[in-house]
């Protein structure tokens, strides 16, 4: 009986130490993450980079693959959400135009984007 109690106490102590080491002191180190796991500000930056590099290398398949790497596939809700948020926030045309062009080339067109483009036209 006493042995069983000692074993149980040992198990609990060991389990506690295991949690302490596994979650706290030596957690699993992630080195091979994907763009989908980036911090939100880096994800925004990633979207910008996809759009800007598309201006230099207009390879739509590659842009699509890059968006997919951050978990954004058709109808590209993350891209649309960021564009609309930046339009609302009054971002500069220089920052918005590459994103809007990419979205349109991907076949995405929303009323907010249409309204922005109509306003932007002289």
């Amino acid at each position: 009986m006493k042995r069983g109690r000692l074993l149980l106490v040992g198990l609990l102590v060991g389990l506690g130490l295991g949690f302490l080491f596994g979650w706290g002191l030596w957690p699993v180190q992630y080195h091979d993450t994907t763009p989908a796991q980036l911090r939100p500000d880096y994800r925004d930056e990633y979207l910008r980079l996809v759009a800007l590099s598309y201006q230099v290398e207009p390879d739509l398949a590659q842009a699509r693959a890059r968006l997919a790497a951050m978990g954004d596939t058709a109808p590209f809700p993350q891209l649309v959400a960021r564009i609309e948020a930046w339009i609302t926030a009054g971002a500069s045309p220089a920052a918005l135009e590459p994103l809007i062009q990419l979205a349109r080339d991907l076949g995405v067109d929303t009323p907010v984007m249409r309204a922005y483009l109509q306003e932007a036209q002289p």
Partner: peptide
């Protein structure tokens, strides 16, 4: 008695690490 306690700690530690890692 100490042996049983050590065995318990070892098993618990192993189980904890398997779960957390």
């Amino acid at each position: 008695s100490w042996v049983w306690l050590a065995v318990g700690v070892a098993l618990g530690l192993a189980a904890g690490l398997i779960y957390t890692w």
